[in-house]
């Protein structure tokens, strides 16, 4: 029983190996980047614009709005990280509609890598916002007694992030695989649809949790809901 696409090794040279996870990730990266570049190389600042531009604008502004709602005052500062998290996870799960596709997020290595990125990014954004002292002080909040719990929480939530995404994505692929052996018709399709839904939900949860961690680290209290001009 194969649990992870990491096990599919395409190329191997000593320590270096090219497995399906990395290859599919590259494929996703290629699609995302080239698609974006193709659409954005000819953007119109006027009122008339292409459907693809509208599509990308909707996505970007929606992400921006979500980040803002979490409590980060300058979404453009975090959209590169948080938006990419969401888009990558969402694209990985969207790919499940392609037969024979192995979502890279169904590999614990990939989710761990993403969780590690969050684990590193949170203190970096916190330090950027409050300085090293201010960020470190936040571990002793509200009292010094909370210091060990805060540190434990920092690690445990990273692990939770990684395992949650991996579990969901892996289980989706797994269920489809099992169902295919039991009932090759109808049910796999329904489960694939369900898998698409869970995949999108996981993408949302992953990026929103990362945003919440960053918001907590930057200690920015949720500001009053500002009138959003882009709605």
């Amino acid at each position: 029983m194969r649990l992870s696409p990491d096990d599919i090794i395409l190329w191997h040279y000593g320590f270096f190996k090219l497995n399906a996870t990395i290859a599919v990730t590259w494929g996703l990266m290629f699609v995302l980047v080239v698609g974006s570049a193709l659409i954005t190389h000819n953007l119109s600042p006027g009122l008339r614009r292409s459907r693809w531009q509208n599509f990308l604008e909707i996505i970007v502004t929606a992400i921006e709005k979500q980040i803002q709602e979490v409590g980060l005052r300058h979404p453009e500062q975090y959209i590169g990280f948080l938006g990419t998290l969401f888009l990558f996870v969402a694209a990985a799960s969207l790919g499940t509609v392609i037969p024979g596709y192995e979502p890279p997020t169904g590999s614990l290595s990939t989710t761990t890598a993403l969780a590690l990125c969050v684990f590193v990014a949170v203190p970096l954004f916190g330090i950027e916002e409050q300085g090293v002292g201010g960020y470190l002080k936040s571990y002793a909040q509200p009292t010094a007694i909370m210091l060990p719990f805060n540190i434990i929480g920092e690690f445990s939530r990273t692990v939770a992030l990684a395992v949650r995404l991996f579990g969901n994505m892996m289980s989706g692929a797994m269920i489809i695989g099992i169902l295919l052996t039991i009932t090759p018709f109808i049910f796999p399709i329904a489960m694939t649809a369900l898998g698409l839904l869970t995949g999108m939900v996981q993408a949302y949860i992953f990026s929103i949790l990362a945003a919440v961690y960053i918001a907590a680290a930057t200690r920015i209290r949720k500001p009053k809901p500002e009138p959003d001009a882009r709605q």
């Binding site: 990266m29 995302l32 990419t84 993403l114 990125c117």
Partner: peptide, 26 residues
């Protein structure tokens, strides 16, 4: 379940993707 080489590669991939999307999308 965790292949540390893949983890490192995915981290690099992700960071590259962040940079590329920032450059070409956001």
């Amino acid at each position: 379940l965790i292949d540390w080489f893949t983890v490192g590669a995915q981290v690099v991939n992700f960071l590259i993707l962040v940079w590329l999307l920032r450059r070409f999308l956001y």
